[in-house]
Design a protein around this nucleic acid. Structure first.
Lengths: 115, 115
DNA sequence: CGCATAACTTACATTTGTGTAAGTACTTAA
DNA sequence: TTAAGTACTTACACAAATGTAAGTTATGCG
């Protein structure tokens, strides 16, 4: 859990309020969110499928990241009340608007990273 | 200093090698890099000027971030051998190619963040 | 000499992010 | 009655990022 107050947190809040770019980067950045979003751009995936295409992610982190993406309104979580359970993740309409953004980031990286 | 080996580090390396988007986000993301780059898009700034326009950043972090941006080839550091010393920071040619990328990120954030 | 200035360094502390391993809930099928 | 499958939780440990405060270097000026 995060601390309720710290210089670190206050700086983050001030920056994100004042700068759209920082807000965007917070929403889609981090170790695993780019990979998760990239997978979901291609279409809906079940929890177990996400786990399978991201073999090195731990379940704990996968769930944490999905929850944050959901909280920010980028990803939708659909539960099917079946046995065994089935949960699907997909980009929300807002998440869909990220597609060109992700494409720009991907293009720049592929064009300019070493090798 | 970073550890020489850890699951965390290995995951980062694998992801960045395989995904241009992750590489880009690593290069421009974090708490302060977006703000630093945003300032430099408008033109060259001295160290003391950067410190002034980013009032909450600590000197230690400012220097660390500038060094990383320099290492990734996005920012150029020019030293004037004067007394008192003068050091200017500006976007490199590679850094200039980031301008449209940063603009896209900024636009999306301004359009979609709450409030 | 002693102070001022700019641009850093250094040592240390704190906060945040990520990883490991094991356990849970639910229901159907054997 | 027990095992199997899916989607998680929980408790804990470790790694990385960020922040604080003080010190350093070099030189010209009074």
């Amino acid at each position: 859990m995060r601390k309720q107050s710290s210089t670190n947190l206050e700086n983050e809040i001030v920056i994100n309020q004042g700068c759209g770019m920082a807000y965007t980067l917070k929403a889609i950045g981090g170790r695993w969110k780019p990979s998760i979003l990239w997978q979901l751009v291609s279409g809906t995936l079940r929890y177990s499928q996400l786990k399978a295409v991201l073999p090195n992610i731990s379940e704990r982190i996968l769930v944490l990241q999905l929850r944050e993406l959901e909280k920010d309104g980028l990803v939708e979580r659909t539960v099917y009340r079946e046995v065994p359970p089935k949960v699907e993740y997909s980009l929300s309409p807002l998440g869909q608007t990220l597609k060109p953004v992700l494409q720009v980031l991907s293009n720049w990286g592929d064009a300019h990273r070493p090798l």
